[in-house]
Nucleic acid binder design. Structure first.
Lengths: 135, 135
DNA sequence: ATAATTGCAAAAGCTTTGCACGGAA
DNA sequence: TTCCGTGCAAAGCTTTTGCAATTAT
């Protein structure tokens, strides 16, 4: 991990390493704050700026994707393979949805340069559905 | 339009009517500010609060969709028919992309309640591509 | 009359930025 | 040593909220 950072001209600081380790380990599609809370536990002096800087840097090197499926905050995803997302409007969880090589409307897009695409599903996730019933 | 508002228990105030008329007329997928600027021209005393309130109200009655494809701000769409969107990261324009009854991965979603979905494409639109070349 | 809506100002929440200090290369 | 990255504080934007005055029904 250190080498791969250095190769890109980035310094492998302990904070940065820890953030990357966290992003690698979680499937929660964390927000900047979620990352901050986690890192703060290991580096009590860490600041929001460092978290935002690091997320920005990783986004720029293409090692991290920024999701805008959550209307209230940016969410991040280290899984760079093509897949889709379901967003629960109750608990705000983001679920990965495998893609099934969807047909894409190439004709309508011919003139635009498409760098990325995915299906955004929204609704109520299975856990929240269950809770609503129980109440 | 007045009747359709009253039927829902909503008042047909001049500000509200103008906002709806604007939303009906534009294909720009406006942000709250874009709506505000337009309305301000016709009702110089109008406030941001009114715009946000109205957008919120229309969203709640299901007459307006909030898009989260733009990472920097909420965008709105009065076109409630199924279609997809392309977001240009340079000029921030949102283009409508017709849908072509995409196959959806129902199996992976079986347990979630899907209320809505669409394909979000991002990249560089044809106009911005052209400008980049010319420079 | 009464209940909803407006407009103002203030506040809240997320994200970015400037800058001096410290640390990795 | 050099320059990138950190941490702090402040600021910037978008969006929300409380409340008194106004207006549609």
């Amino acid at each position: 991990m250190k080498d791969s950072l250095n190769k890109k001209g980035l310094k492998a600081t302990p904070q940065r390493m820890e953030i990357i380790k966290y992003l690698n380990s979680t499937k929660s599609h964390p927000s900047a704050e979620e990352v901050y809370v986690y890192i703060k536990d290991k580096f009590p002096t860490v600041s929001f700026a460092t978290v935002y800087n690091t997320l920005q840097t990783l986004k720029n090197t293409g090692d991290l994707k920024e999701l805008s499926i959550d209307p209230d905050r940016k969410r991040f995803d280290r899984d760079l393979t093509p897949h889709n997302h379901f967003f629960c409007k109750i608990c705000k969880k983001i679920y990965d949805i495998p893609n099934i090589n969807e047909k894409v409307n190439i004709d309508a897009l011919n003139d635009h340069l498409v760098e990325d695409y995915s299906i955004y599903y929204t609704g109520i996730c299975k856990d929240c559905k269950k809770m609503n019933k129980e109440e």
